[in-house]
Simulated scan of single mutants.
Amino acid sequence: MIIDMAQECYRHEEVLELESGEKLPGFEIAYTTQGHLTAAKDNVIWIVHALTGDANVQEWWSGIVGEDKFYDPTKHFIVCANLLGSNYGSTNPLSNNPTTGKPYYYDFPNLSTRDLAKALEHLRVHLGISSIHSLVGGSLGGQVALEWAYILKEKVKHTIILASNAKTSPWTIGFNETQRMAIEADSTWGENRPDAGKKGLEAARAIAMLSYRHPQDFDAKQKDLDEKLDGFRISSYLRYQGQKLANRFNAFSYWILSKAMDSHDIGRARGGTEKALSQIQSKILTIGVDRDLLFLKEESQFIANHVPKGSYKEISSRTGHDAFLIEYEQLQYILRSFYLEEV
């Protein structure tokens, strides 16, 4: 049985009030759906992508989503939306500002993870989805999913947070700030053109890769076996990764979404982190990575320890942070065990 994936776009005509006090005069969200709702409408799996991801979840999480995979569209109704601010079909800084008729560029408003969750909530209502069986997100997607779980209350049954946290640490903000400094150092940044900051984005991605992987992973895959003074494998690898991202993404969206990641604080204006977590009603599974240098495993454990129905599992991988996108066998085992606990 072949399940087609539908690619669609939701247009929200009303003003979106942002946490900063700024306003977005309407927005669009690109999203994909796979599979069909059951009569009871109890099989919705909603997946939230990471920083530079998109709505095509079966491509970047191919070991988890797809026919005969863990989240199978022959059994589930799978939804994945491109986050507000991202440049894969959703409203972003390169979109036209309806007030001026020209691209926003640097005038695009700041977004928080709460704003991103709020936009997804509007899409859920538009789709007529009354409840979500499982809400899943990793890294930035995990931050947004946690915010959304707080908003959804009893409307989400399970929330699965991978390699993420309840409040962004100074360490993670610091990594993001150095990447934005790299973009600022690009002489084209400040110009009103779609490719402004492109070389800076290449450098930013190279910096990010140092936090996405563990030193042991680089040692195993990028070590030079011959003696040399220059032209190291890791150097060419990081340059390649930077160019690869810059050819498919843009510095404006990277800036906005990294700022959104920095803003993440589930407890802001809610009485603090622990109090906010204590009010989340869904069953929570947090998955940490033992050698994650960006979102430490202790941050995942903190969430599990402070929600009413929380549990923690761990991926063991020298890959580091990116293990949540790679270690399919471990993930499938963890997810299967999580759902079997209810049987």
Rank of each mutant, 00 (worst) to 15 (best):
T286D: 01
G267D: 06
L294I: 05
L245H: 07
G288W: 10
Y254C: 00
G288Y: 12
D262G: 00
T273R: 06
W255I: 02
I256Y: 03
G242D: 05
K275I: 14
H264L: 06
Q279F: 05
I303A: 07
I284N: 06
Y240S: 05
D290F: 04
F252I: 11
L293C: 08
A276M: 10
K275M: 13
L257R: 01
A304Q: 04
D292H: 08
A246C: 07
R270E: 11
G242E: 10
Q243T: 10
K283A: 13
N250D: 15
D265H: 10
Q301F: 10
Q279D: 07
A246V: 02
A260L: 02
T273K: 12
Y254T: 00
E274P: 00
I266D: 05
Q301Y: 10
T273Q: 12
R270F: 12
A269W: 11
T273Y: 00
S278D: 04
Q241D: 05
Q301A: 12
M261I: 14
E274N: 07
I303S: 04
S282W: 11
L257G: 03
I280N: 04
M261S: 10
D265N: 15
Q241G: 01
S263G: 02
K244M: 08
G272A: 07
D292T: 06
A269Q: 12
K244N: 12
F252N: 03
R239N: 14
G271K: 01
I284K: 01
A304N: 02
I287C: 01
S253M: 06
G272C: 03
I256Q: 11
T286G: 06
D262M: 08
F302Y: 15
A304C: 07
T273H: 01
